[in-house]
Design a protein around this nucleic acid. Structure first.
Length: 282
DNA sequence: AGGTCACCCTGTAAGC
DNA sequence: TGCTTACAGGGTGACC
């Protein structure tokens, strides 16, 4: 489900309920998701206070006052929604099966439910001061919205690469947080074919990708992410960025580029769908 | 070294 | 209507 904008949307929605809150109870309803939960996860969380709720790439980070950080990845279909238990407001989609409520976090005033039908998500607990060297992040590239991701960096990262630019931008070691949707959208805005080899793109065009990627992600965050199937904001509302897609999931529709006249095509790269216009993306 | 692909799992939609 | 198939926003590890 979630790429960086969706995870950031969830983070912003959860933060008012969780930052500074003490976890009074944590229900862990099965032994694993994609991987086993960390040992004694419920006991290690219960009684802890969440000092800050952060994000690295597509990972949510709940920093605790015990020197550990809870890492949450939503996989493809993971959702986290918050209810104010004082108001009795429950954001439950009728199609959202309770048997997929795998972890429920309780504070004195709120309940946060992690629901993940496909169970591609996972959670981990690691020492906060060792986060960057943990196995999740040690090989991870820069944040696309941070200073480490810039024009010179991307030119160097693409130099000599024989892989399609689509695969290069999905490679979390090059830039961390992009997924299938936002790579397709950014490449259309840049006029670059997803099939083109990363090392065979003139450097001015590579450089142009940097502000375009920042714009696409920023606009998507402002829209609350993209809701195709599973994504919900933390209050249960849909995201709205999918209405702005130029190419993603728009096979057969006219290219939105002014005066282009092309048609959006779907291809498969590395087992995933790519969408692009063969006329204005070269 | 670098790149591709199958796989993890369930739900949904399309095709027959 | 019911069955089968393809596909889905991600990440890992085995393989070439």
């Amino acid at each position: 489900m979630p790429e960086l904008p969706e995870v950031e949307t969830v983070r912003r929605g959860l933060a008012p309920a969780l930052e500074g809150a003490r976890l009074t109870q944590v229900d862990v309803n099965r032994p694993d998701l994609r991987w086993p939960f960390p040992t004694d996860m419920s006991a290690r969380l219960t009684g802890a206070t969440i000092t800050a709720l952060g994000r690295r790439s597509k990972y949510l980070l709940a920093h605790l006052d015990r020197g550990e950080t809870l890492i949450v990845h939503l996989g493809m279909s993971g959702r986290m929604v918050v209810d104010d238990t004082r108001l009795g407001q429950f954001h439950r989609d009728p199609a959202w099966l309770p048997r997929h409520d795998h972890v429920v976090f309780h504070t004195g005033t709120h309940r946060v439910t992690f629901n993940d039908a496909r169970r591609f998500g996972f959670m981990d607990l690691v020492a906060t001061d060792a986060l960057e060297t943990s196995r999740h992040f040690v090989r991870m590239g820069p944040e696309p919205l941070g200073n480490g991701f810039n024009e010179d960096y991307l030119v160097a990262a693409f130099a000599g690469r024989n892989t399609p630019v689509k695969s290069a931008l999905l490679d979390q070691r090059i830039v961390a947080g992009l997924g299938n949707i936002y790579v397709c959208e950014a490449l259309h805005r840049a006029g670059i074919s997803p099939l083109r080899k990363a090392g065979r793109i003139a450097s001015p065009r590579v450089r142009s990708l940097v502000p375009i990627i920042r714009d696409v992600l920023g606009e998507a965050i402002e829209a609350g992410g993209s809701s195709l199937r599973d994504h919900r904001q933390a209050d249960g509302e849909l995201g709205y960025f999918q209405h702005t897609f130029r190419v993603y999931d728009r096979e057969g529709t006219p290219c939105p580029t002014d005066g282009c006249g092309g048609t959006i095509r779907r291809t498969v790269q590395a087992g995933r769908s790519s969408f692009h216009c063969v006329i204005c993306q070269r």
